[in-house]
């Protein structure tokens, strides 16, 4: 601070910082390292793999060459028979290949991406309308709504899981795949809307009112002023809020597990990874590679949004 540090103090400071950083980063290094290790190398405590082993990534990303199909001679003769249709041949071959064992990581990633992306867009859009109204316009029950938003956000998903599940059963949504996904989307919407409204409301209040006033003097309506002045000015914050909502949906496990258990094709990554992990043994390399691939988009997103996010987070209402 004001006085120079002695060498001893410097050493202490740097070792404390280093200890803290290692504590934070070590699990990530562990994941990266294990994802690159060959199974025989797992017991090796060093983080550096003896041999670089990329099979786990290749398998997850579908880059593995298909395994040589080992077909008995009798079946081979059958296959050589020109009278057999190509379709039948495929079916026969499929019985001998191990294709059914592959974890459809790409599919789960796409599922998760689609639902998270739509959630993020819808939530940010609806929240920006509501947040603008609460921050700028005067209307009945306005302060009730402003406080209610925070309250609603703090009521966690666990408290709502039974009634929301029962509601979707009663309405008949839970009985079809489409209805289930719609239920899940609506649930993700309410899990993200309150925080999006809160963050955007705080941000809109920092934009000087004189900007809208000037636009309205020039003949813009209120809605036009919002659309042409406020929204473009808020682009970085809108992006940040979008990322935040996206990541909430990307991470969600509880409701995905309640609703998507029997719809395997539509499962999201958290649920699919958990199922993969509990159903098979000794697949650390694949699990860790899948973890890395789930992690990367999120970390990149947050790094992009970090500057605004830190400010938004410290306003206090954000989940953590």
């Amino acid at each position: 601070m004001m006085n120079k540090r002695t060498p001893l103090q410097s050493v202490i400071l740097y070792s404390l910082v280093l200890a803290l950083v290692i504590f934070c980063v070590f699990p990530f290094l562990q994941i990266l390292s294990t994802s690159l290790k060959h199974p025989i190398d797992w017991g090796n405590p060093s983080l550096i793999p003896r041999i670089l082993h990329l099979d786990a990534y290749k398998e997850l990303l579908g880059l593995m060459p298909p395994k040589e199909v080992d077909v008995p001679a009798s079946i081979q003769r059958l296959l050589d028979n020109p009278a057999l249709s190509a379709e039948k041949k495929q079916m026969l071959l499929a019985k001998f290949s191990s294709g059914g064992d592959v974890f459809p990581f790409g599919r789960y990633m796409l599922n998760t991406f689609v639902i998270s992306f739509i959630t993020g867009i819808c939530s940010t859009f609806l929240a920006s309308l509501a947040a603008y109204a609460i921050a700028r316009l005067r209307f009945p029950a306005q302060s009730l709504m402003a406080n209610g938003v925070l309250f609603v956000y703090m009521v966690g998903g666990v408290l709502l899981m039974v009634p929301l599940y029962q509601m979707s059963v009663n309405v008949g949504l839970a009985s079809s795949a489409g209805g289930t996904i719609l239920s899940l989307f609506l649930i993700y919407l309410i899990q993200t809307l309150p925080v999006a409204m809160y963050m955007l409301g705080n941000y809109f209040r920092t934009i000087p009112f004189s900007l809208e006033e000037a636009a309205m003097m020039d003949g813009c309506s209120r809605v036009e002023a919002f659309w042409r002045i406020i929204m473009p000015l808020s682009k970085p914050m809108l992006f940040t809020v979008f990322i935040y909502c996206f990541v909430i949906a990307w991470n969600e496990y509880l409701f995905a597990s309640v609703f998507l258990k029997q719809y395997q094709d539509f499962q999201t990554l958290p649920l699919a990874l958990q199922t993969l992990f509990t159903s098979k043994n000794a697949i650390w390399d694949r699990i860790m590679a899948a973890s890395m691939l789930t992690l990367l988009p999120v970390v990149i997103c947050f790094m992009l949004a970090n500057r605004h996010l830190s400010g938004g987070l410290t306003d206090g209402g954000v989940k953590g």
Binding site: V21, P27, V299
Partner: peptide
Amino acid sequence: LILLPYFAPVISVVFG
């Protein structure tokens, strides 16, 4: 770096 744990999805760090 010390913000990383907070940003990371739960599912991708629990296995680590």
